[in-house]
């Protein structure tokens, strides 16, 4: 039991965590004042002039407070972490699902038809490297709604990995399997659903997994720009409030949610995987 790999790995993880938090905690200790406070300092209530990153113990206490009531709503400037994350997730999932609805069928067509591949390839190659945030001004001007613009930015950044992976997966389905469909006189539609889709599914899911990761990266930046609600806005707002406890706490929450999204897609990927 003690010898088993997962157990040893978990033990090592805990040791590393304790070590890191220990160093962080120690370095955050406010040194004892050796000199007496000046009059000014006394006026300022003895505040430390040197700003410090809060120690992990403070962050943990803050996290506990926030997580024990994640959905409170005390007006536009003070909402619980759960509400902020829910806003972000709503935007990410809406943009992502819309992108999947377009990318997967288009990817199918591009993958099945060399003509379509060559015709659409220049557009894909030019549009793909554009930073999604570069679309923001144009989106705001055209859509005239910050909420929808944020969703559009998610849409535009998650469409490419899904489109390219679907096209690649479909184009590389083994000729033998297509021949099996042909010798069984399957219609094009049935071939697409019974042979090509299951054959390309692992590649398509890989694209979907890359996309959800990018979408979650981009939503933070997009919400810092559009403001109002969401985890990205929350981080920036707490920075403006100089509440570093909240900033660090929300950074950790972004990581946790991103991990959960990836976990969901990777378990979906396991469902469609096959061994040759």
């Amino acid at each position: 039991m003690i010898q088993s790999m997962p157990f040893r790995a978990a033990l090592l993880s805990i040791v590393i965590a304790v070590l890191l938090f220990g160093i962080w905690e120690a370095s955050s200790d406010v040194p004892e004042k050796s000199t007496e406070m000046t009059e000014y300092e006394m006026l300022m209530g003895g505040a430390d002039q040197e700003a410090r990153v809060p120690p992990p113990s403070d962050v943990l206490v803050h996290a506990w407070n926030e997580l024990s009531d994640p959905f409170y709503d005390k007006g536009p400037n003070d909402k619980g972490i759960g509400i902020q994350l829910a806003y972000s997730l709503y935007r990410v999932l809406t943009g992502y699902v819309l992108a999947a609805l377009i990318a997967i069928p288009v990817g199918f067509v591009v993958g099945m038809s060399p003509l379509m591949y060559n015709a659409l390839n220049p557009f894909i190659q030019i549009l793909r490297p554009i930073s999604p945030l570069a679309w923001m001004p144009l989106a705001l001007f055209i859509i005239q709604d910050s909420e929808t613009s944020a969703i559009f930015v998610i849409f535009i950044c998650s469409i490419w990995p899904m489109l390219i992976n679907t096209a690649f997966g479909v184009a590389n389905v083994r000729e033998d399997w297509i021949n099996v469909a042909r010798t069984h006189e399957l219609s094009s539609l049935r071939t697409a659903f019974l042979v090509i889709l299951p054959a390309a599914a692992p590649t398509i899911l890989t694209g979907m997994r890359i996309s959800i990761g990018i979408a979650w990266l981009v939503i933070v930046a997009a919400e810092m720009l559009v403001g109002g609600t969401g985890i990205g806005y929350y981080v920036w707002n707490e920075w403006n409030n100089l509440d570093l406890n909240s900033v660090i706490f929300s950074i950790l929450m972004i990581g946790c949610v991103g991990m959960l999204l990836d976990l969901a897609l990777s378990s979906a990927q396991k469902l469609v995987e096959y061994n040759e």
């Binding site: 033998d176 399997w177 021949n179 099996v180 010798t183 042979v195 299951p198 469609v272 096959y274 040759e276």
Partner: peptide
């Protein structure tokens, strides 16, 4: 006309 391919061509999923 049924075909048995050299590499079996079974659908692996």
């Amino acid at each position: 006309r049924g075909v048995v391919f050299q590499n079996y061509s079974l659908l692996p999923w």
